[in-house]
Design a protein around this nucleic acid. Structure first.
Lengths: 147, 147
DNA sequence: TGGTAATGGTTGATTTTGTAACTAACAACC
DNA sequence: GGTTGTTAGTTACAAAATCAACCATTACCA
């Protein structure tokens, strides 16, 4: 007979991570969606620019591990909405440097503040030590650090 | 002046969770995709049936927090491929009870074993105590437990 | 009983994503 | 200089997700 197995879907790490990820992004999603009409990829591009500008689309592809077509379309939309400015490099005319417009800067600062507060709210579920450990473990799972 | 801020995207919990989630689901995805041509929602439905059958589509909606149209289409595909059987309830003819066919059972057991091994492989990155704590924290973030 | 609301599930239209093929610019090598 | 190969980014088409409207059935209730 096939013994009743001790597997539990809710403990399967990829499933659990996905559920936690979805659940914990809901509140933030409401904000960037309602306030700026952005999609997930778009706020990410915005944030990457806010943190590292000026950078190219390829840089974002590498850092965020998002497919280049998604980035391409997100950048296009952000440019259309005057959040982002693109500028072709003179020395290598294939690449274009992306940077935030003043409106983009404003949106970024606003959302960054929301993110910071929301993160604090989520982390309040844990002790400081637990939270630090959680981030460390997630970084390792995400491949952000080798070890 | 606007002080250079201490915000780091890579530490923002929803972002970090999403990256960890995506990264850690890649390997398993290859298996259910290549071996059974399934999509994410489909293996999840399969697993829910494997664990809790017989249940209705609505039950899965509630448990897995997946939209009902996604479930509806996933179930349809699984039925088409003879992994799942549907049976209208006599007492409430709106509902239909879903259960696995023998082929579905086989696929489920196979994938469950893959999942178990893969989970162990992921958890090997941590000590036993860390792993247990991680799961507990993720469960809390996912809303699997109230507290 | 009859009318209205709620539930389980499906379908169609639109939006978003994924995959591959493509253009343009540069690099490397002969 | 002229192939050949790479890289940056876009576009076209197919696959999938989202959203709203939709049946069919059951529940509620005057």
């Amino acid at each position: 007979m096939t013994e009743k197995d001790d597997f539990h879907l809710q403990d399967f790490l990829p499933y659990l991570l996905n559920q936690a990820s979805e659940e914990s992004s809901l509140t933030f999603q409401q904000v960037y969606k309602n306030r700026y009409g952005m999609l997930r990829t778009e706020w990410r591009v915005l944030f990457h620019l806010g943190m590292y500008q000026p950078i190219t689309a390829s840089d974002i592809v590498i850092r965020a591990k998002i497919h280049k077509t998604k980035i391409s379309r997100a950048v296009q939309k952000l440019v259309d909405r005057r959040f982002v400015r693109r500028e072709r490099r003179p020395d290598d005319r294939r690449q274009e440097l992306l940077s935030l417009t003043p409106a983009g800067e404003t949106a970024y600062r606003d959302l960054r503040e929301v993110a910071r507060q929301y993160d604090a709210q989520l982390m309040a579920k844990f002790t400081t030590g637990e939270g630090a450990l959680l981030r460390m473990m997630l970084r390792r799972l995400a491949g952000f650090e080798e070890s």
